[in-house]
Nucleic acid binder design. Structure first.
Lengths: 218, 218, 218, 218
DNA sequence: GCCTAACCGAGACGGTACGTCCGGTCTTTTT
DNA sequence: AAAAAGACCGGACGTACCGTCTCGGTTAGGC
């Protein structure tokens, strides 16, 4: 479900005449934020399985109904937390402009602060249990967590092709998938942190060689 | 824990008098298989989180004690199921011998039958919840599921280097990690099947270009 | 709390200067009635415990604040409903004047119409949960529900003693208690209706024999 | 539901041949007792409304499932507690044999010990909320709480008629109802204790006069 | 006619209990 | 002693309700 659908509910049922002013008290956005913030913290501290809704509710100083009014289940809440986390850290700044694709990518991948990196890693590390809580739910489409991140990387790679730094046949989508997969595997399965050694060897050892040497198209 | 430790229990605690005659009824190996089989099916049908031990016990027509006598926990059981699945499909045949690294890799990655691929995919797709069920447990080392598979791939790549098909500086370990990560991401997060298009473009677009064009060592 | 106190709030807190002009919009008495009416109906239909304030509010087409502005809690509302019900049916007519205590009592006890009796019974039958909702609250004194009713009966009995129909030693208070207890037990615990057979045998079999044959004072 | 039905479940589904030995672990009667005991205590301490199932479970050192396996709801549990309480205190001793109906009745009504009386009173006083938790449930038949008690009184009254102490036309059932009603009213509504003054004046002022002076049958 | 305060319906809010469901352990009977 | 069956404790989940608070709007006086 997620935030958006919740809002839709009150607006969707007018079809013709009335502008359908939503009656009653308004949703308090501060509550949304307190809940998301608390959830993020708890995920980082104890992981998905050991996190309980009562913990969230207590730390957010919210009522259970306020949580379930917005998200239909624990997994639904966590799903939203993930996209919210990345939205927060990415939308602040525009694309990096270092002049070379290698440093552009590293600038994005390397988190802005050590604290942020640490938190993101700990959240991800405790997240395994969440991934397919309800099998069919996330079956279509990508996993929200990596989506905004990959958007930025996609733009960087496209720009590098445009200015001739990478060959036009370079398979951008595949490269993006490699980056996302390696990051997910490292956090979710290997439980190792996203340090610069990791990102560096990923870019230099795999991504750039593959992009610069695309296979001859069949 | 797994199968082995369960067996040890009855032999370890008498050391002197009796020549280790196991008293009472013998363990029934058919029970092991019924449980593993049922678990695999249920994993494919509903995923890790929605699978309950009672489901397993009911389908295997076993008792709960019989399960917990062999495996110490739900995750322990599933861990065993996974290596059991891979053992079954890999140990049959030795290394492929096609003469070229490309076809060698594809021969291993491509599953032997469509039905088997489908089941393996569905099990993996419903497995996310399992990955870090207990945060610290699998924190060190790799995930068992991919271990035997990567062993085979490692041997293939080493052989290709030995016979000069790949340069000696090729980073075998990184390549293995790319393969495992991409497979895990596709199954666990994207929930898309392991078809030959996927494996083909992975090998041709990423793995081989990266192996053949290693970065200049710093 | 009840109706009165709600009104008092706006009048009580200025005592000297202003001539106590209540500012703002006036309370709408129609709202009071809609709420009381709805509450009565719902009590008869589902009983105290299964009645929710949201039901009341929905049926009365009122807002929750409008209810809690007048009554401080669910029990407070129901308390008022009960005295309101009895006020309605008793205050209309003065004491009956049949000439004999037996017919006087029956005239009061027997409800005026079958429909009214039925509703009163159903309300009472679903009322148990309410009785000691807050243990200490009604601990002292009698239960309001039967108070006005017993007042009338008390007057009738006194009059009968005065005119010599009952002996002066007759224990009026005990007799009143018997009537109230039997009615409460029948409605609250036995869930059987207040038909004339019940009241008739109560008066003839218990109340009058006891009153006419008081025990020798010790 | 109650205790009995729970047991029936496992025995009811054999119809022809097998003696149907119930498989699996047996219900532990000690658990039943721990739960009933704890419930009684908590009822006496905080009343029905303020008693939570978690309190019961915690004090009884039981699991929630063990409670709900035996009783389908909070009210179901309390219903059973009540008959269990009275069964416990009455079945011990046979009918009293004082020779006169007055002292016989008082011997039964007056509780055996002050502590027992006090507990019984406190349970009853906090019980109001329970009475018609689900309206239709206790609609037919009497309320279990007073049933065993009235059985004893019925026997005493019959015996007194047989030996000529009371006239044969005495309405035993009505007298029993008076006793039960007065006791219920005093505990549930007036919240006053069952002291000997109360029982004494009830017997002497109401019950015996009514029994000894039955109305002329019409 | 405009201002201001209290009202109104609607409904979100914090808090808390309920009854369900599982994981992992323990007990009973049969093999 | 191991098997099937199932009861046991503990604890999280999602629902429902109470009494409070907030929203936009309406209804009166007093100016």
């Amino acid at each position: 479900m997620g935030l958006v659908k919740g809002l839709k509910i009150q607006k969707v049922d007018q079809s013709d005449s009335k502008p359908s002013v939503p009656l009653g008290r308004k949703r308090d956005n501060a509550v949304d934020e307190r809940i998301l913030e608390s959830t993020t913290e708890i995920l980082a501290e104890v992981g998905y399985d050991n996190m309980t809704m009562d913990m969230v509710v207590a730390r957010a100083k919210a009522g259970k109904a306020s949580v379930y009014r917005r998200w239909s289940s624990k997994s639904d809440l966590v799903r939203d937390v993930l996209s919210w986390m990345n939205r927060n850290s990415l939308e602040l700044d525009g694309l990096p402009e270092t002049g070379a694709i290698r440093s552009d990518l590293l600038a994005v991948l390397r988190p802005h602060s050590a604290a942020e990196s640490d938190r993101k890693f700990r959240v991800l590390a405790g997240l395994g249990s969440f991934l397919s809580h309800d099998m069919g739910q996330t079956a279509t489409g990508h996993f929200e967590l990596f989506q905004p991140w990959m958007e930025v990387n996609r733009a960087l790679l496209r720009r590098a092709i445009d200015r001739g730094e990478l060959p036009p046949q370079a398979d951008v989508e595949k490269a993006l998938q490699v980056i996302a997969s390696m990051a997910a595997y490292r956090g979710l399965i290997q439980h190792e942190p996203f340090d610069s050694e990791f990102f560096g060897s990923l870019i230099d050892g795999i991504v750039l060689p593959a992009l610069k040497n695309p296979p001859p198209s069949p």
